[in-house]
Design a protein around this nucleic acid. Structure first.
Lengths: 201, 201
DNA sequence: TGCAAAATTTCAATGGGTGAAAACAATAAA
DNA sequence: TTTATTGTTTTCACCCATTGAAATTTTGCA
C-alpha cells in the first residue's frame, strides 16, 4: 500500500496543487496555463490530466473526502437523533473542516476560498460539485430516516438548509469579510430555514 | 427600432438557437461543433460569438428576460403583500413561463430541459445562472421589504425556497417523468421551506 | 447614388483537453 | 540479480472553443 509508487504519486499530486494555487494567486486563474503549472511541478503537461480532470479541478482537490465524511455522519446517526439535529451536525462539521486547513497552509486555504468566489469558472464548478453533494446527502438523509421522510422531503430539507446558508453567506461576503461574521450569518440562515420562511412575514 | 438590421439580427439569432438545439438533439452537445451550428445557421463560426458568449449560452437564450420579469414582479409588489406571498408568486410565474414555450416549439422546450439536466457543462451553466439570479432576486426582495427584512434574511429566504424546490425536483426527476408530478413536488418543497424544517422532526 | 456605421467574414493564434504509442520506472517472480 | 510484468510518464499529433485584428460586405441615411 505504501510503496515508492504510491508515495511518489502523492508527492506529484501535492506538487501540482501547490504549483497551481501559487500560480493562480500570482497571475490569476485564466492567465496561468496548464503548461506553466506542469512545468512548476516538474511533470509533463499530459501528466496533469492523469491527476485532475480539468484545470478547475485542482482547486477542489479535497471535496470528495469532505462529502464522504458528511455521508458517513449521516449513515452513523444515533437512534435518538432528529432530522434537523443530524443536518446541523453536518453543517458544523463542514465549517470546522473549512477552518482546519488540511494539507495546505492556512494562507492557501484562504487563497482558495477567494479564488472560488472570484473566478466564474471556479464558481460554476463549485456550484456543480455542491449540487451533486446535496443530492448524495439528501439520499443519505432519506436512508437515515426512511420511516419519517420521503425522498422528496429529504431533498427539500437539504436544499432549503444549504440553499439558505449558501445565499446568505454570498450576499454577506459582498459586504463584510471576517470568518466569524460569515459564521454568524450562516447560523442565522440555518435558523430561518429551520423555523420556516413564514416566520419572516 | 425595427429596421431591417434589427429584424435580420433577430432572425440570425433564432436560426442559431434552432440550429444548435437541433444538432444537440441529433448528435449530443459535446459532439456538435460550433462550426456545424454556424454552418446550419448560414453564418461564419466567428459570428456565433457576436450572438452568444459560449456554446453553452445558446441553450439559455431567454434566461435574462425571465429574471427581469421576476425582479419586476418584486419591484411592483402591492402594499398588502407578505414576503412569502411575493415569493410564491414568483415561483408560480416561473413555472407558467416554463410551460408556455416562448419563441420555440414545445418539443424544443422539452428538449432543452432534457439537455440541461443531462449535460454536465449545461448543468454547471444553469446552476451558475440560477445562483446569480437568486442573488439579484434576494436583493430585489430586500428592497421590496426594507423595513421587514435584513439583506441576509432576504437571501436566506430566497436560497431556502429555491434550494428546496431545485433539489426536490431534481431527485424526483430521477424517478418520475411527468410535468404535473414535478409541479406537485415543487409545491410540496415550497411548503417544507415555508413552514420550516423543524416540521419534519 | 455615395458615405459612415454596423455586422460579417477571414485569418491567425492560443490554450484546454484527448488518444495512442513509445520510453521508463517499480515490483514481484524466478 | 536478472527478468518479466505492470503502472506511470512522456511525446506527439490532433480537435475544438474562443479571441483579436484586419479586410469586406451590408444597411441606414443624407
Amino acid at each position: 500500500m505504501v510503496g515508492l509508487r504510491e508515495r511518489k504519486k502523492q508527492r506529484t499530486r501535492q506538487a501540482l496543487i501547490e504549483a497551481a494555487l501559487r500560480l493562480f494567486d500570482d497571475k490569476g486563474f485564466e492567465e496561468t496555463t496548464l503548461a506553466e503549472i506542469a512545468a512548476r511541478a516538474d511533470v509533463s503537461t499530459r501528466t496533469f490530466f492523469s491527476y485532475f480532470a480539468s484545470k478547475e479541478d485542482v482547486v477542489f482537490y479535497d471535496t470528495h473526502e469532505r462529502l464522504e465524511m458528511a455521508v458517513t455522519t449521516l449513515a452513523t446517526r444515533r437512534p435518538g437523533d432528529s432530522v434537523t439535529g443530524v443536518l446541523l451536525r453536518i453543517i458544523e462539521q463542514s465549517f470546522e473542516q473549512a477552518a482546519a486547513y488540511e494539507g495546505l497552509t492556512p494562507e492557501d486555504a484562504a487563497l482558495r476560498a477567494r479564488l472560488i468566489l472570484t473566478e466564474p469558472a471556479l464558481q460554476a464548478r463549485a456550484l456543480l460539485l455542491l449540487f451533486d453533494s446535496q443530492i448524495r446527502i439528501s439520499k443519505a438523509l432519506y436512508e437515515a430516516f426512511p420511516e419519517r421522510l420521503t425522498q422528496e422531503d429529504a431533498a427539500a430539507a437539504v436544499g432549503a438548509l444549504i440553499g439558505a446558508i449558501k445565499l446568505a453567506a454570498m450576499v454577506n461576503l459582498e459586504h463584510h469579510r471576517s470568518l466569524e461574521e460569515v459564521w454568524a450569518v450562516a447560523r442565522r440562515a440555518s435558523e430561518v430555514a429551520l423555523s420556516g420562511l413564514r416566520t419572516l412575514d
